[in-house]
Design a binder for these strands. Structure first.
Lengths: 221, 221
DNA sequence: CCATTAATTCTACGACGTAGATTTTCGAAC
DNA sequence: GTTCGAAAATCTACGTCGTAGAATTAATGG
């Protein structure tokens, strides 16, 4: 009694007109769900195909290779970025842009590395996303070179912060770990004394907002 | 005539006392060289072993798995960070710290992703590296919470900037690409008008320094 | 001298990305 | 209608990867 649990073995051949048929969109949607739920390293062509109820090689008729899938996922995420910001002072617009970008990254922590990498490489999608930031800074009356410097600074900060926010046990548990230092082993109590003292004295709740405020303050002359 | 070019086939067994013998250090050094020269994705146990003139499985007696090698590489890079900064005003010390950290990342562009990830996850090595930055900010007379916010902001910016600096065709060629937009296809001329205008008007040479100055300026009250 | 342990090579397994051949269906030309 | 090329799917297979487990040899401690 072999209890054959394998699938009914679909036959090859182009699907009939009425039958669903695979789609680039369907593939990316399934892949994004898989990555969001189980992490990027569990994304393999075979698993993705089995999720779609399809042969692994079918995917290659809609996307050229695995790298294209991953970059397609980043594009998918980027396409969720609102291209228009609420009106307001230029500072408010910069804050709104930063929050929106940060929201994208936080919605997909398992893709943060790819998102910030793509942003850093200034892909076409990343350019489209940055435009509202430039517009807000331009409205501040800065000189052209200053707009560029400001935008770069903000983008770099936001990327770095997104990375940290998604890191397992990142800056969040830093204070706890520093506090637990001397109790464990007395000899490493002195490797980071300032950090330990400062983290014991003051707690920070909103690191992201604080960073944006520092940068905004630095843009005034 | 089989022209047997395969290696002389070393026999198994523990090496004699005088013979060299594999070392964690030797493995990491070879791996770092391999990664620096050919990129991280060409780092495989088999290639690394062949580089060392050794069987792939030998490596596992010194490092538990491939992930340990990569994180060992990051530790290797971090250990090059100078733990003492030249004296000076607190601003000068912050600048010096940022430059030193940036230098680490620029020296190993193929590892930048792992470096900033490790830094964002605040590994033990990353803590040791950050201490001088905290000390400099503490010397500025900021309140504890302000020191933390400032350090986080600077670390995030520096990480994001390192990522961008290592990205192939990152912010460097951005101006060229924006300038070449309307000539190619007239319909995408409007997707990023502010960016195009601003980049045409002003060129930025030292984005990193400019970012640090903006943040430093933002820390004054 | 003997037993343990350490360091190495050997063999093998399952998973991966994907090239190439095969099968089926669609859609347009005749 | 029939024919025929392209499109969309599956099937088979190759080379590579990380690494578990056994075999082999030398150092080391009793």
């Amino acid at each position: 009694m072999p209890t054959d649990v394998t699938k009914p073995a679909k036959r090859p051949g182009r699907p009939r007109r009425d039958q669903p048929g695979l789609t680039r969109q369907a593939i990316l949607t399934a892949a994004l769900a898989l990555v969001d739920e189980h992490g990027l390293d569990t994304l393999s062509m075979r698993r993705l195909a089995s999720e779609l109820g399809v042969d692994p090689m079918s995917i290659y008729h809609h996307l050229p290779n695995k790298a294209a899938i991953v970059s397609g996922l980043v594009g998918e995420v980027f396409s969720r970025m609102p291209l228009e910001l609420p009106a307001g002072t230029w500072q408010e617009r910069v804050r709104a842009w930063a929050e929106a970008y940060r929201g994208l990254a936080r919605a997909h922590p398992n893709l943060v590395l790819q998102i910030v990498t793509d942003s850093a490489a200034v892909s076409e999608a990343a350019i489209a996303i940055s435009e509202p930031l430039y517009a807000a800074l331009d409205a501040a009356g800065l000189a052209a070179a200053e707009v560029i410097a400001a935008a770069d600074t903000i983008v770099d900060f936001v990327n770095g912060n997104a990375l940290g926010a998604a890191a397992p046990g990142g800056p969040d548990q830093l204070a706890e770990r520093l506090a637990a230092r001397d109790t464990d082993d007395p000899d490493d109590a002195d490797t980071a004394p300032t950090m330990r003292r400062v983290h014991a004295a003051g707690r920070v709740t909103a690191g992201f907002d604080a960073g944006i405020e520092i940068i905004l303050r630095g843009l005034r002359r």
